[in-house]
Nucleic acid binder design. Structure first.
Lengths: 109, 109
DNA sequence: GAGTTGGTTAGTCATGTGGCTAACTATTCA
DNA sequence: TGAATAGTTAGCCACATGACTAACCAACTC
């Protein structure tokens, strides 16, 4: 589980890979089309795609000689869940602080 | 802007640093307390803290010889915004697909 | 004011990451 | 079937990252 978040965050830490995710959230696309806007050699780009797929953020399938890549929303949910947990925790904490402040206020008056 | 997301995702790709964020979302703490549960040399740990602070996820202040670290919720918001944008895009896409499917359905009958 | 505590700086090292080229395989099209 | 297209594999290189130790500074405490 920890490893999964590691991979997801790592995959999204690179602007090229994030751009691919952004492109893919508009719909699936073949490798060559995904590669086109990026000024780097194809093998390099393929390794970025591999990182994304290993992290579970994308899925790909080959038909004929064309490999089509698509996004897998589940992992973005994983990310969002982690984020929500953090936010919940610190909001609870802020609530407790507010409570404490209110109590202080009461004892003061 | 791109650089900011790079740094945030990168910072959170490491389990040690994520653990620190999780700890900090419960409230601020001095360096030594944050370090305690992690089985690594202090200088190593300090560099993790630096990565977090450089990314803007945390803030720290030194009073006397104690440095207190706290979380900066803004950057987690930055993260969430990116996430929401992706989700919106692909939900719109799914909506369009549904619309298309409905149109197909109508022409068929 | 000497020792302890809390943190910092400097420097080293192994490994990981991101980039490349060159050579290769497997489809599709003429 | 021969050429073009779409990916793939292998191997190289520079630099970043994460870990360590050793030495250091600053501020409490006795």
């Amino acid at each position: 589980m920890t490893n999964q978040l590691d991979q997801i965050f790592f995959a999204l830490a690179d602007p090229t890979r994030r751009a691919v995710v952004e492109r893919l959230s508009q719909g699936a696309a073949p490798v060559s089309e995904l590669h086109a806007p990026h000024d780097m050699a194809l093998p390099t780009f393929l390794r970025h795609l591999k990182v994304l797929e290993d992290s579970g953020l994308t899925h790909s399938e080959k038909t004929g000689r064309v490999r089509t890549v698509s996004i897998k929303p589940d992992q973005l949910d994983t990310l969002e869940n982690w984020l929500n947990e953090q936010r919940c925790t610190w909001e609870q904490r802020l609530d407790r602080l507010a409570l404490l402040a209110a109590q202080l206020e009461r004892t003061k008056t």
